[in-house]
Design a protein around this nucleic acid. Structure first.
Lengths: 345, 345
DNA sequence: TTGAAAGCGTTACCAC
DNA sequence: GTGGTAACGCTTTCAA
């Protein structure tokens, strides 16, 4: 006696007519449509989502799985997704699958299997083999943001390219002792950081500096970059003249470390990052900018496209990072390189 | 022919028995329970959430509304909530209601009204009158994290008390020229920051320093704190000897600004924050620690309690921040205060 | 253009 | 203990 039937009664029509009038499908005379709409408004009618889902098979909800919430990139992507979903009238169910956490297994085994969503967006998930299987088994459209796009539709930047260009920027400024900062070859070493390291590596090799390749391990966080940089910058002999950081958080950590140690940026040390983090400007950080918010929005468009056309083939939307030159990078001055050389002698 | 009836058939029982066997309620012989369970497992049966919701009126889902995702406090609370919900087998639907955004109105008017959740957690929402009305109209348990607890159950720290103690810490160290940094008296000035300012103010007044009260406006972000501090610290005459920041992000911004300007922390400037942000340690920041993750978990417990006992009265769970002394605060040295005095003369 | 009725997949009441 | 059946609130044929 509640819900749509009440609306129907008030409008003097049948349930089915009311449903048609309220929905966008089916013929209804303009007159009845209006009457039903008015009745619905007067009653403050809100359809029961579970009833709708049950009847239509659509949940009007998109699931989002991500391993972190408290990192800039992820939060930005999430906001982009949220914004876009809001415009489409869709809800967002969030699954926080920290790598290696106990909850992560439950998410893949139980939560996602419930299919409480029409489609799924996986942000920087980097699922292992088993997890990927589960994901696919759900049988709903999946779009990944960041990662490899063999199995799902993907939106990301070209990580290799970004790191390569960052490195080339420093090379062009005359630097040779360039180190890559961030990531650590262990089980949690993210593919993103591996790819970026790869971009750096090949740029170095192409410049004939293969012997000077140096990967400084660090957690991929601001304090992680700080700690690693403090360590490295303290030793004058080993100090690079420039650093390519795997992301802006790490880069900023390095800048803060340099300042603390009295190492001038950029005159004694150039630092470049990838992201264009919200703090980048404040630290005058030169960086390769990506737009995670836009990536989130794009991901939404893609799931919706897959929803509309189930046979749509997987696609890869790879954006190119754009260079933003601020003043954390500068040409290598002869005397400085000399100074370093002297110190080594 | 799919779903539970298939399980039932395979187990050789009726739908209703299968349902009972799978659920926790109702009598079923141990034998049948096992058979049904096995059948379900073999079939990989996963109940349809919409059907369950429709039949039971429970969504097994909790809604979370917050104005920001990309700030430390909010992300932490969200992770805490997520963790706790995961343990209870509940899903989380996220609503990002940025203050003043266009989407925010839609969230209150359309999205929340759908009642896609059994209960709601509002984090730092600070709803206006109209919004609060909507919230209450939903007719579902609501728990607020941060804010005032007149209308809903609340979990928060005592903001006034935290700021007061922060201020008293500086007073005890001999400081008198103490400024409060953060927040701005405009429409977006959060109540939290207002309360903290209040705590600072009363501490100052109680110390007989009412005339020295000074609120430096700033965005409540790290760059905001930085920008405001650069401004203030540049002027030696006006420079305070100590700063109470409305939160750690702002405090850290101030510390970075001080370093840039060559103002030694803590010898020339003491800074204290509120939060115990993940960067606090790296900046040796003295602060009043709160545990947003635990607040998130507590909020979940409270919604669940309300769900179980609809007549449970509103409650206020106000935790006390605990002081973490690091080395961003130090006693005011006589010569420094003299120096400042000289400069003013 | 409208209405009756059959689902959608569960749960829950009520007999047996 | 177990099985039929109504009910949850909506959409969607199919006739009229």
């Amino acid at each position: 006696m509640s819900g749509i039937s009440e609306v129907a009664r008030r409008a003097g029509v049948s349930k089915s007519t009311a449903s048609r009038a309220l929905g966008s499908t089916g013929y209804v005379s303009e007159d009845t449509r209006e009457r039903v709409a008015r009745a619905a408004a007067e009653l403050g009618y809100v359809p029961s989502t579970s009833a709708v889902s049950l009847a239509t098979g659509r949940t009007k909800n998109i699931g989002v799985v991500m391993p972190y919430l408290n990192r800039w990139f992820f939060a930005e992507v999430l906001e982009g997704i949220q914004e876009a979903l809001l415009e489409h009238g869709l809800d967002l169910t969030l699954y926080d699958a920290s790598p290696g956490s106990e909850g992560r297994a439950r998410i893949f085994d139980d939560y996602l299997a419930r299919k409480r969503f029409d489609g799924l967006i996986a942000v920087g998930l980097e699922p292992d083999h088993r997890e990927l299987e589960r994901l696919v088994a759900i049988g709903r459209p999946i779009v990944s943001v960041v990662g490899s796009g063999e199995t799902t539709t993907l939106v990301a930047i070209d990580e290799e390219d970004a790191a390569r260009r960052a490195t080339e920027h420093l090379l062009a400024l005359g630097h040779e002792r360039i180190a890559f900062l961030g990531g650590r070859p262990d089980q949690h070493w993210a593919q993103v950081d591996r790819r970026r390291l790869g971009g750096y590596t090949s740029a170095m090799e192409d410049a004939g500096l293969g012997a000077g390749i140096r990967h400084i391990h660090s957690d991929v966080t601001l304090p992680g970059g700080y700690a690693a940089a403090v360590n490295v910058l303290g030793d004058l002999r080993e100090r690079p003249t420039a650093i390519v950081a795997t992301c802006d958080e790490v880069a900023i950590g390095a800048i803060i470390a340099a300042r603390r140690l009295g190492v001038q940026v950029p005159s004694a040390l150039s630092v470049i990052g990838i992201d264009d983090h919200e703090y980048a400007e404040m630290f005058s950080l030169t960086t390769l900018k990506q737009d995670p918010r836009a990536q989130g929005r794009a991901a939404v468009d893609l799931v919706l496209a897959h929803l509309q056309d189930p046979h749509r083939p997987h696609s890869i939307l790879r954006q190119r990072a754009t260079m933003v030159v601020r003043s954390s990078t500068a040409p290598l001055t002869p005397d400085r390189s000399a100074a370093v050389t002297d110190a080594r002698a």
